[in-house]
């Protein structure tokens, strides 16, 4: 069986190589932290949960099945951990006040020139604004957007994680994109 990069690292970790674990952690740290942070939106808790996640991964790594992708296995652990945290702490994860985002991030750009159908904004700026708008959408849509685009999961994998039917996952992601497009249009980031 041919091992991918992550799996080779896991083999080394199982042999007791702590540098291999450090490498694996460095690779996933940003995505895991960002997923947790965007779900619970609390810096301190996100930091603690990310730390707990990596400690958990290390302690259960011997249970990892080499037939599956490590990322999917790890993201599932992360997702369950976040959901548990939300349940236990009854974290308020409903959408941010959209007005804040509009005022602070979007309205700053309304004076820009229209060019080729879009405002003349750098892609990086649009990216940053879209992702800030993601934080404002209801959690039932946001979590699916995060699983799909931040963790790069397929529809069936998301369905498996969340326990929702694949059709519902697809519909909610479509709905989330409609909401995002509407928000961008409302703030004249996209042209009608």
């Amino acid at each position: 069986m041919k091992l991918d990069e992550d799996q080779s690292l896991i083999k080394e970790i199982l042999k007791g190589d702590k540098r291999a674990f450090e490498k694996l952690m460095k690779k996933y740290n940003r995505r895991i932290y960002n997923f947790i942070y965007r779900m619970i939106r609390d810096e301190e808790s996100s930091k603690e949960l990310t730390q707990e996640f990596f400690i958990k991964i290390y302690t259960v790594i011997y249970k990892y099945n080499f037939q599956y992708k490590f990322s999917t296995w790890a993201y599932r652990i992360c997702y369950n951990q976040v959901i548990d945290h939300i349940r236990k702490n009854q974290v308020k994860i409903d959408s941010l006040d959209a007005k804040d985002i509009k005022q602070k991030q979007i309205l700053d750009h309304t004076g820009t020139q229209i060019k080729d159908g879009y405002h003349n904004l750098e892609k990086e700026e649009i990216k940053s604004i879209v992702w800030k708008v993601v934080d404002t959408i209801p959690v039932k849509y946001r979590e699916l957007i995060l699983l799909r685009y931040l963790q790069g999961l397929k529809y069936d994998e998301i369905a498996d994680f969340t326990g929702l039917p694949v059709g519902t996952v697809k519909n909610r992601i479509f709905k989330a994109k409609e909401i995002l497009k509407m928000e961008m249009l409302k703030n004249e980031m996209f042209k009608q």
């Binding site: 460095k26 932290y33 960002n34 942070y37 930091k47 730390q51 940053s128 994109k177």
Partner: peptide
Amino acid sequence: NFELLEGVLEEPSLIEPPGEIEKYVM
């Protein structure tokens, strides 16, 4: 618009995690 949105979502804007996470875990 959806194409632009898709392109933007596929390249997520990531926040830099606090440096102490890795140190603490190790």
